[in-house]
Write a protein that binds this DNA or RNA. Structure first.
Length: 717
RNA sequence: UGGGAUGUCGUCUAAUGGCAGGACACGAGAUUUUGGAUCUCGUUAUGGUGGUUCGAAUCCACCCGUCCCAGCCA
């Protein structure tokens, strides 16, 4: 079932989704290649390469580069090599090589027999280095790391030449050979290119070519105690592979003169480096160093944690390679620093999964329903199609009995405005089964919590349609209690609660980890899924009707303990209505994405950043009349208020004002200022639907009140 | 403040001297046995100031903003 169906034809598709030889609309890189095709610069040849360093798992940013490199090659009937840039054994590992191979393949790309390693070229790289020495354009330098830094100068001042810069060719050769032979300790000497210590480009100030580093290499073992630097190894590797277009990210722009310098000095094949802007995605980050840290600190379960932006994480989360490829295609290639909206990635996975996922019913948080007029012991079976728009996907039988589960959220005892679902006396449809009407509510005598529902069904509505043409506004998913399979469901959400983690960290002086989304994973146990899911295999993808796309977890799910991961929610216009007219600005998006309650700012008032008048104007301040007020059990700070803000219903507000109002009953009847468009906040004790304003000193303050005229709901200005 | 890049709807990206287009997001409506999907419609942009030109997002000048570079990392 998984991976069934094809993606729709889209002229923008590249790579595997497009026949070779039909270039996509020209991004600037393809424009350059088109020009080369015209002028014959590379004899019509295109050979790119994807050059990861095996020091971490691949992420969605790498996917952009992979799609670009393999896509460009495919567009021009060229080839793309996979090459591991493994010149720093102290950070690299075989595990990463294996994962990279798996991930690139999974994305749908292949390199035939062209899997290379920079370490394959160590001997040649060494010989070329001797050649540079013989030419007099490289020398052995004995400066320490600190001295080298001091000699380099600064951004605005030129560097100083190393005292070792003018050693003879013979001495340099001798020293370099002895470096290779292991005669000197780590860091004692380096080989440097002899270029220009006064260059405004720091990369040209006699850059280091080789350093002594005793570290066992994952491929060459202890053969070498000398490892080449990226700036040297990369152009030479490209050249040896006769790469035509060496595509890399923007930060290497400054390195291009050096790249060209090596190829020219060595007089070898002239590959051309072209730089494009790396991918940044909102609400996540691509830094391998930080991603590694999340893994090492146990903040996530591993590189393949479904919250990680890694290919492995996305795969485990339920993403498809097609969706990722299409996303990469859609974001385009340019040189502007940019931050792509996570919504766009989610759009593509929804689009793909919408087409290919079978629909099933799963009740995440069950509420028991007894159909009182349905015979005990009877079982009905409904044949329900797997896909409403694609009969070809077939159908399954779903059992129906007197005792069912529906979603807790699908019932409200006192339904709020625009709530279409079940409520006392109200009739709704059970998907594919019958209309039912709620006739009773069972509650826990102590807590008042709703524990079960009594309903009746209309036998004439079998299949979900009424012969008399009567309509219902809501359709609910359900499972038969006797047949349902228990499951654990992991609700994943974005890893961070701010769009631009780096910028936010810089602005506030906090660590990026301070912006982790506390609700990035919500584990729901005791969910009930329909029996057809019994045979699900790891990574099988489904739509749980009305909730989202889910896949069976590839690691933790077993035959008798099913674990599902939520890939992405369905678009949810009900969630929008629920939070409508609240949260100013852009909410972190989607369902159940409440921000962590904001801690009170302790900073002195003059230190708070200024806001524009427009920001202030976004506060909807209203007059509210306190109708009910009481203490909150289990909290020594909060007071529970029910406030009339002229909406025809009372708002529940939890306010931290108990210190000044130990007897909240005195507040009843007071006119207060309510921030009416604050996003409702889920608290331990319930949802708080606003704030009331207060003012004063640290231990002497009061809430703002009005006397006299204003009516509940009046605007405060 | 040296050097290298880069500024087009809220976001990403086209237009290469000739109608500022697309996608996402957002909004309105239709439809619906998923508050899904689908369909229709809509709002929103060339950083600024001058100049060249019949005509400028595009060419020129100046200004402003943003990003990258001082690893023996890649």
């Amino acid at each position: 079932m998984r991976d069934a169906g094809n993606s729709k034809d889209d002229p923008r598709d590249t790579g595997k989704d497009t026949a070779p030889g039909t270039p996509s609309p020209t991004d600037f890189i393809r424009a350059i290649i088109n020009e080369h095709m015209k002028t014959g610069k590379y004899e019509g040849r295109v050979n790119t390469r994807f050059p990861p360093e095996p020091n971490g798992y691949l992420h969605i940013g790498h996917a952009k580069s992979i799609c670009l490199n393999f896509g460009v090659a495919a567009d021009y009937n060229g080839i793309c090599n996979l090459r591991f840039d493994d010149t720093n054994p102290s950070k690299e590992d075989q595990e990463y090589i294996d994962s990279i191979i798996e991930d690139v393949h999974w994305l749908g790309f292949d390199w035939d027999d062209r899997m290379y390693f920079a370490s394959d070229y160590f001997e040649k790289l060494y010989e070329f280095a001797e050649q540079l020495i013989r030419k007099g354009t490289a020398y052995v330098c004995d400066l320490s790391a600190e001295e080298t830094r001091a000699y380099r100068g600064t951004l605005t001042e030129p560097g100083k030449e190393s005292p070792y810069r003018n050693r003879s060719v013979e001495e340099n050769l001798d020293l370099f050979r002895r470096m290779r032979a292991g005669e000197f300790p780590d860091g004692a000497r380096v080989l440097r290119a002899r270029i220009d210590m006064a260059s405004p480009n720091l990369n040209m100030r006699d850059p280091i070519i080789y350093r002594i580093l005793r570290s066992t290499h994952h491929r060459t073992g202890d053969d070498w105690c000398l490892y080449p630097m990226y700036d040297y190894a990369h152009p030479v590797s490209d050249s040896l592979e006769r790469i035509t277009h060496s595509i890399c990210t923007l930060e290497f722009e400054d390195h291009r003169p050096l790249y060209d310098w090596f190829l020219e000095q060595l007089d070898i094949y002239r590959s051309q480096q072209i730089e494009f802007a790396r991918l940044n995605l909102s609400y996540t980050m691509m830094s391998k160093r930080r991603l590694l840290e999340l893994v090492q600190l146990g903040i996530v379960s591993g590189w393949d944690d479904p919250r990680m932006p890694t290919i492995a994480g996305l795969r485990r989360r339920g993403y498809t390679p097609e969706a990722i490829r299409k996303f990469c295609d859609r974001i385009g290639i340019a040189k502007n620093d940019s931050m792509v909206d996570m919504d766009l990635l989610e759009h593509h996975i929804r689009e793909d999964l919408n087409e290919r996922s079978p629909r099933v019913m799963a009740v995440l948080r069950p509420l028991m329903v007894t159909i009182e007029n349905y015979p005990e012991g009877k079982t009905d079976e409904f044949e329900i199609p797997f896909h409403p728009g694609n009969p070809g996907m077939g159908s399954r039988k779903v059992p129906f009995t007197r005792t069912l589960y529906i979603e807790q959220d699908d019932f409200q005892e006192n339904p709020q405005d625009k709530f279409f679902r079940l409520a006392p006396g109200r009739e709704v449809r059970l998907r594919g089964a019958y209309f039912i009407t709620c006739t009773g509510v069972g509650k826990d005598v102590k807590t008042g919590e709703i524990t079960s529902l009594k309903c009746t069904y209309d036998p004439a509505t079998r299949g979900g349609d009424s012969p008399d043409g009567r309509k219902v506004k809501g359709t609910l998913h359900w499972v038969s209690a006797a047949h349902a399979i228990p499951a654990e469901v992991r609700l994943y959400d974005r890893l961070f609660s701010v769009e631009n983690i780096g910028a936010e960290a810089e602005r506030t002086g906090k660590d990026y980890k301070d912006f982790l989304n506390p609700a990035s994973l919500v584990i729901v146990t005791g969910s009930m899924v329909e029996p057809s899911l019994k045979g699900a295999s790891p990574e099988d993808r489904y739509q749980f009707e009305r909730q989202g796309y889910f896949c069976l977890d590839s690691k933790d799910s077993t035959g008798h303990a099913l674990v599902f991961n939520r890939t992405v929610t369905l678009r949810d216009s009900w969630a929008k209505i629920e939070k409508a007219s609240v949260s100013p600005g852009k909410a972190p998006g989607g369902k159940a994405r409440d921000k962590k309650p904001q801690a009170a700012e302790k900073a002195a008032p003059e230190k708070l950043p200024e806001i524009a008048i427009d920001d202030f104007a976004r506060l909807d301040l209203r007059v509210g009349v306190v109708r009910e007020a009481g203490l909150v059990e289990g909290s020594d700070k909060l007071v529970h208020l029910r406030v009339d803000v002229g909406e025809g219903r009372l708002r529940q507000i939890f306010a931290g004002i108990r210190a000044m109002y130990p007897d909240p009953a005195k507040l009843i009847g007071k006119k207060v200022v309510v921030v009416a468009n604050l996003k409702p906040r889920a608290m331990k004790f319930g949802t708080s639907e606003g704030m009331i304003l207060a003012g004063g000193h640290a231990d002497s303050w009061s809430i703002c009140t009005f006397e006299g005229d204003p009516e509940p709901g009046d605007k405060v200005s």
